[in-house]
Design a protein around this nucleic acid. Structure first.
Lengths: 189, 189
DNA sequence: ACAGGAATGGACCGATCGGTCTAGTCTGCT
DNA sequence: AGCAGACTAGACCGATCGGTCCATTCCTGT
């Protein structure tokens, strides 16, 4: 397995990540992925024999892991849960604004498209969201909350994050992100 | 304009509403809409000369209005804002569960798909969300909040609703809706 | 009854979809 | 040097996409 092949593979996944975040699963064609990544069609099916589904599943998993890593990193410091949520929303907001509101939650668009009709992709999203929520819940438990309360609060906080990312993209404004961060302070105090 | 034509037109919009809520804009083909509604291709372009975009825009606007009406109706009673949010989430949750988690927010999937790439549809979604938020904000003002605080709280509550609907669909569980409703009690108290 | 617009039914179009296939090229090992 | 497997390049496939077109049928007002 040469380094060149690895790079092509990585470029395909990266292009897929960018495109499905902005346009979703159905809105993103393989021709678009090929054009964006510069890879020929043959390479795609060499690296990903199962085609689009495999490529998208991997892109979603990678994106989910990246956020989880960021979250774990923030949770490892001395920050409160509310401060972590604020930090997360700031990071997402910056990305979003700079992309012309094409980027938000890297999973959400696909997650909604496939929630009822494509079990494998749905499960990838479910697992990623689960990891994010778990990270927040752990932090809350360390802060003294009981397990049940922490899970519920983390679930609500994640809903706040996801909802505000959606509204921010639709409204082309970071205002919902700020409102959500303030609400999180109240919620996670 | 005969009654028969009106009915065909309505069935086309209704079928579109159902399909785009579950699969989004790109995931829904006109052939699917035609099959679901039983209308022939010619009728679609007779009633909607601008094709898919016009049909989807109308479907989104109708769905947005329906929720706004429900919201207005609930806000007109003696309920608190938190109770209204709870009622809204209960109604959405029932629909969602009964549809096998195919239905959630009727706008969200399309809203994310088109947030950066299809201005007319984006604006329809933005306006609908704005109406929902306004209804909640008015109720909060009537409850004694100042304008700015009410707007911010309504924005956060709407984010909570949208985020929990997304998570519920992805997880195939109503739990996130319940967590969001409880969080709304804390937030809107 | 009948004229004329409203509405239907469906064949047809070029473009694009995801996917297959194979000839050719690159690369590292012996 | 030369062989084998990794990888690329792109032509090609049937299916489906959104959209156009027109002959036919239905309905309504006179």
């Amino acid at each position: 397995m040469g380094a060149k092949g690895e790079e092509t593979r990585a470029r395909l996944v990266q292009a897929t990540r960018v495109l499905i975040e902005a346009q979703g699963y159905f809105g993103t064609g393989l021709n678009q992925v090929l054009a964006e990544s510069g890879a020929p069609r043959g390479s795609l099916y060499f690296h990903f024999p199962d085609g689009k589904d495999q490529l998208v599943a991997l892109a979603l998993a990678e994106a989910g892991r990246d956020v989880a890593d960021l979250l774990d990193h923030m949770c490892a410091g001395e920050l409160s849960a509310a401060e972590v949520v604020r930090g997360l929303l700031d990071a997402f907001g910056e990305r979003m604004e700079q992309s012309g509101y094409a980027k938000g939650c890297p999973l959400a668009t696909v997650a909604l498209e496939v929630a009822a009709g494509h079990e494998p992709l749905r499960r990838v999203c479910e697992q990623a969201y689960g990891e994010w929520q778990r990270a927040l819940a752990e932090l809350l438990v360390r802060g003294g909350r009981d397990r049940a309360g922490a899970d519920a609060a983390a679930g609500a906080a994640l809903a706040l994050v996801e909802g505000s990312l959606l509204l921010a993209r639709v409204q082309h404004s970071r205002l919902p992100l700020d409102q959500a961060a303030r609400a999180a302070e109240l919620l996670l105090a």
